[in-house]
Design a protein around this nucleic acid. Structure first.
Lengths: 337, 337
DNA sequence: GTGAAAGCGCTAACAA
DNA sequence: TTGTTAGCGCTTTCAC
């Protein structure tokens, strides 16, 4: 039961008494109702300040059937998303955006041993809406959550049914731009280290590369797949080099793999960007620190988080919003290309 | 006002009716009261299952004056802590631990433009307790929060008054161990790249190094300070080498600076660990990927987060707990030493 | 061991 | 525009 040190918190009723109005009026002032006389507003606000009144969330929520809180759902298996700078930035964007609203952010780690607990929490009227960030196309756990409460996804759901709401970055355009940059630099044998084709980011970034290559009349066969890890980048680059086909540039689907490619290129005694130009994706912190510093595509995950939160809040408040929001990416030219 | 699609959620009253008992009894069963007859418990549980009943948080909280939710407070200026793997792991530890309890985790980004909003939220009976993770010794913003609600700090507050509760890793012992390892390897001219002395982690890690050196009768003057960033590590190592004094090992207060040192050592045409052995701290992901892989001190930030959450929950529930919990660190020997 | 009844602090009709 | 009056769904004495 904890500490009982707190003095009795001031209630709305006490404010009403001190201001000489009814509780309803205090409630109106607190909630910014337009139809209260200015002098009453002032009196109420004075009383609020004097008593240091702060509304009780639970009571408000119980009476209004609104919770003013939204959940960010993270499957336990991917709870290490916290350490993935990618997700971390999204969370940050969400948190910072919500700080500017009256909504509270709850982090829900979906326990897999007891999925019901999460489901019931989410559907049991504890939140006004949910945000779901997921990698995997295979993860359909939250497909039905949207029936109970407004949901906004981060990243395009692979099996988008046109019903769901999401915010995503323009992976196709981004990888197209990255590849185009290499082409503009005069490279003609441009390989790609692609990500898994069953993840939207993997699939789309491969597509953009292919599109740019085809459009330029170049051969789009120099492709190897990785899993977004640095190690997989090393392996993929080795395989690419082992083909003995000419390669003068490589576009990696993320910076981690690009940095892996660095290693394989060095092993082969080749130089960057002299022999092979490299472009990554994500604008990881590591890329700018690497030698040579890595050219990459920047996308504001921060912004993505904020956009998700904004879209969700709007939905909760009944506004009509687009199903999809696509954020732009930006080429950052450094020394590797 | 949002979607009105949801069917009326089952209430405790409906459960009571279906089970043929009073609401009080249902409440007792839901809350695991020991004094309810087994057959009634069963009847109630059956009704709950049948109706798919889930208690309303707001109502429960209003009646019990408990919120079952705790806040993780993050000052906005440091909201990029999200992207610091260090903090990210703590958050993860907290979240995962809480998932095993009935407590909900709220992330509060303390807006600096409107500090009152945060303070009032925190002290306004919206949470049962708070977790504060901070770097800076200068940050006294939450010193007084503890008067309103139980608080547990992550990392020793620099100005610990013996009143506050915190969980920390044993930085002194860890850096002592790291340095001792170098000494055991036969190194005698061991430098350190220390962190800022006004952060507990910086101060303590320097202390451990000094202690090990002094104890071994070695000279503890080879010290330069950085700010925990890779760049500062490069600079510090350059200054160390510029001294023209013999250096055969360096202990850096974190891995990022250690990796910075790598670069300066390479610039000087020296080898690791041949000429200079390097030991870092934190067991960053980058360390194991570096060439040569970095010997470092591992500390489970995950565990730290979980320990914080556990301590807070215990305090909230009235249990007596130690003010300080110090977590052990572990030496990870790799190729750089 | 179980039930009846009185709120927890607020919002939202409805009247005035 | 303001006040009155019911609750929101649950916990918690207090009797029985």
């Amino acid at each position: 039961m904890g500490l009982r040190s707190e003095a009795q918190a001031p209630t709305l009723e006490m404010v009403a008494a001190k201001a000489g109005v009814s509780r309803a009026t205090v409630s109106r002032v607190v909630n910014g109702s337009p139809k209260v006389k200015p002098d009453l507003i002032e009196a109420v606000n004075a009383a609020i300040a004097e008593l240091n009144y702060v509304p009780n969330r639970a009571a408000r929520s119980l009476a209004s059937r609104r919770t003013e809180s939204i959940a960010l759902v993270i499957p336990e298996s991917t709870s290490r998303v916290f350490t993935d700078p990618f997700f971390a930035l999204i969370i940050q964007g969400v948190a910072v955006y919500l700080a500017s609203t009256d909504y509270t952010l709850g982090i829900v780690v979906a326990s897999e041993t007891n999925p019901d607990k999460t489901r019931r929490y989410l559907t049991g009227g504890n939140i006004d809406g949910a945000l779901v960030v997921s990698h995997h196309s295979g993860d359909h756990s939250y497909d039905r959550l949207g029936q109970a409460v407004p949901v906004v996804f981060g990243g395009r759901p692979l099996h988008s049914d046109g019903e769901s709401y999401y915010v995503d970055v323009d992976n196709i355009d981004g990888s197209y731009t990255a590849t185009k940059h290499l082409i503009d630099r005069g490279r003609t044998h441009i390989a790609t280290i692609a990500g898994p084709a069953d993840m939207p980011a993997g699939f789309d970034r491969e597509l953009g590369w292919r599109r740019a290559m085809t459009e330029a009349g170049l051969d789009a066969t120099l492709i190897e797949w990785g899993d977004f890890s640095p190690a997989s980048g090393v392996m993929a680059m080795r395989r690419l080099l082992a083909r003995k086909a000419p390669v003068d540039a490589v576009f990696a689907a993320n910076d981690q793999m690009a940095l892996g490619a660095y290693q394989a290129i060095a092993e082969a005694g080749l130089g960057i960007p002299g022999d092979i130009a490299v472009v990554g994706y994500d604008d990881d912190a590591l890329g700018s620190a690497a030698a040579p510093s890595l050219t990459t595509m920047h996308q504001s995950m921060n912004e993505l988080g904020a956009a998700m939160a904004e879209k969700l809040v709007k939905r909760i408040e009944g506004e009509e919003v687009e199903h999809a929001t696509i954020l732009e990416t930006r080429l950052i030219v450094r020394s590797s290309s």
